[in-house]
Amino acid sequence: MLANGEAGAQPGLIKDTTTQGFRQDVIAESMQQPVLVDFWAPWCGPCKQLTPVIEKAVKDAKGKVKLVKMNIDEHPQIAGQLGIQSIPAVIAFSQGQPVDGFMGAQPESQVKAFIEKLAGPVGPGEAQQLVEAAQEALAQGDAAGASELFAGALEMEPEHLGAIAGLARLHLDTGDIEAAKGILAMASEAKAQDPVIAAVRAAVELAEQAAALGDTAELEAQVAAEPKNHQARFDLALALNARDRREEAVDHLIAIIRADRGWNEDGARKQLLQFFEAWGPMDEASVAGRRKLSALLFS
């Protein structure tokens, strides 16, 4: 594996420059392919957010563009000449001239679109290709093959969120909650709130809750004997979800909300929303459950 996570990246795609080196690193190089100049400073928080995003996008472009980084604290002259007043600022040079740019931290999709506008379509990176292959393997029922592919993606890109989420969910599906938690811990604090990671983390939390509840039969009997026992019904919903009986789990939580919206500080509704997060917004049970919840709350 190459250093700094640059698996498969061409050497020289990303470099730092100086005022003296700008003419060669940017003006001359932009005669061959577009060069993105990232003006940044060590004290700039948004610059730190943009760095991994733009570096990944440039690597994924596989030589169609280059990235040159300029610390404006050490080398302010070029930024001043270009009229840059806030950072991060990215200016694209082509044929020796500035042709486009953007300011502020941007999501990966926007940075990729910016590069494609300059250099044409950019395919997925190697890590993303492995993740897509892993998802295809899962669709065909090959969990072992998917696990190897997700692991391979993480070898190339240790913080690939799709690979982290996919591998963690595979462990969760086998009942290895601790292993799933360990995989999720690979996501940095900055990326831990991404919806892809949050969904798996919610599923892990639900699995931990359900593990302490035991068999559903006893809970079902208790609810049948005491229909107004909201705690027993709540626990039953968790246990049913753990057994993939999602529609029934939703119905029990809806029953609690209908009977006593304020029970346990609106606990049934909050639990229902956690179900939706763990299942994913387009899951059939999530869509149907949201309809039932909306019908109850807004009718």
Rank of each mutant, 00 (worst) to 15 (best):
E148Q: 15
A180L: 01
G63I: 04
G8L: 05
V196R: 14
L253W: 12
K56F: 01
P227D: 04
Q95G: 03
P46H: 09
I72T: 14
G96F: 01
A92C: 07
A163G: 11
A217T: 15
G214E: 09
L273V: 10
Q85C: 00
A180V: 03
R245E: 15
E189L: 08
E205C: 01
I177M: 03
P42G: 14
L206M: 10
L273W: 09
I54D: 06
A268R: 06
L253H: 09
Q95D: 13
G8S: 03
P11G: 00
A89S: 14
A179D: 02
L170H: 06
G5F: 02
F114S: 08
F39K: 07
V204K: 02
S188N: 10
D215L: 08
E157L: 05
M282C: 00
D194L: 05
Q274M: 13
S299I: 04
G101Q: 07
E126L: 14
K15W: 00
E157D: 15
N71I: 11
A168T: 07
N4R: 12
L2H: 09
A79W: 03
A207C: 06
Q81H: 02
F102Y: 08
A207V: 08
I54P: 00
A139H: 05
N4W: 11
L130E: 10
G141P: 13
S294C: 02
K48D: 04
A217S: 14
G182N: 11
A285V: 05
D266A: 02
H160K: 06
R243T: 13
Q110Y: 00
G21A: 13
E284I: 10
M70R: 02
V68I: 12
I14K: 03
A255M: 02
A242M: 05
K69C: 11
G267V: 04
L184Y: 02
L82G: 07
N71C: 08
L236P: 06
L238T: 08
A212I: 01
Q32G: 02
V53T: 13
R258Y: 00
M186N: 13
R245S: 13
L272C: 07
A187R: 03
E116K: 08
A61W: 02
A232T: 10
L206G: 11
P121A: 15
